[in-house]
Simulated assay, not measured.
Amino acid sequence: MNFFRRRPIDPEQDAARQIAALTASRRVIVDAYEVERRRIERDLHDGTQQYLVAALMKLGEARMAPSVAADPWLGRLLAEAQDALGRGLDSLRATVRGIHPQVLVEQGLEAALADVAQGAASPVRIVCPHPLPSLPEGVLATGYFFACEAIANATKYAPGAPITVLLATDTHLRVSVVDAGPGGARLVPGHGLAGMRERLAAFGGDVTISSPAGGPTQVVATVPLLLHRGEPGVVV
């Protein structure tokens, strides 16, 4: 006789465990992206950038040599090389800052995109009707880079057209980028927003596009907040 009966499985508790496990695994994927991004940022800042700075200083010293002063052609050549290297260093610094903008971590997604809007070639308006909750760093970065890609595409294919970026959350972060251009946009496999869609799909997100002839074009990213049970998705 079996005196020990197996307790029946509570379907609700079992579903909650499965959801928690899925959320945890997706957070691992997102965190892995951020670890790799920070590694690249560190390597560029502490390695490549320092070598370029040293080379720039060496060129400056070379231009002061007496033999260079006596050879105008060589002086011009070194000056051009120093200028080109300086521009390359400025470009690298901009790249390093763009890999993970400090304002994104310190002030949040709305403030980081406001900075992007100020430097955009087309007029960009950032709309965030309700304060965003505290978001995992990977979710923040995904929303930010999606918006940057969508703004860049809009300014390229609909130059001068006004752009509106709408930010909202529930169980997902939703980033909607609308431009008043002529429409006809599409996702090209392996490029730009299509690449972002593939990355988002890895942790349950998606990118959709609506772009009828005559416009407007709307591109929307739906990014799971990857919240644990009980964590709020909306700031009240």
Rank of each mutant, 00 (worst) to 15 (best):
F3E: 05
F4H: 12
R6F: 04
D10L: 04
D10C: 06
E12I: 11
D14T: 11
I19T: 14
I19A: 15
L22N: 13
L22S: 15
A24F: 10
S25P: 03
R26V: 02
V28Y: 11
D31L: 08
E36Y: 02
E36W: 09
R37F: 08
R42Q: 14
R42M: 04
H45S: 15
Q50F: 02
L52R: 12
A54Q: 13
L56I: 00
V68L: 03
A69K: 12
P72Y: 01
P72K: 07
P72C: 03
G75W: 00
L77K: 12
A81E: 00
A94E: 01
V96R: 15
G98I: 03
I99P: 02
V103N: 10
L104D: 09
V105I: 09
L113G: 13
D115E: 10
D115K: 11
Q118N: 05
A120D: 00
S122Q: 04
V124N: 06
R125F: 07
R125W: 06
R125N: 13
V127T: 13
C128S: 15
P129I: 06
H130I: 01
P131V: 11
P133W: 12
V139Q: 04
V139H: 08
L140G: 07
A141V: 10
Y144W: 14
Y144L: 15
F145L: 12
A147P: 13
C148H: 07
E149N: 09
E149I: 02
I151C: 12
N153S: 11
N153D: 10
A158V: 07
A158H: 06
I163F: 05
T164G: 08
L167S: 13
T169C: 14
H172R: 10
H172G: 05
V177A: 11
R186Y: 05
P189L: 01
P189H: 01
H191N: 10
A194R: 12
A194P: 05
G195Q: 07
R197K: 15
F203H: 14
G204F: 09
D206L: 09
S210W: 00
S211T: 01
A213P: 00
V219A: 15
V219M: 13
V219N: 02
V219S: 10
V220S: 07
A221H: 06
T222W: 01
V223N: 12
L227C: 03
H228I: 04
R229T: 05
P232T: 09
V234N: 06
V235E: 10
V236F: 06
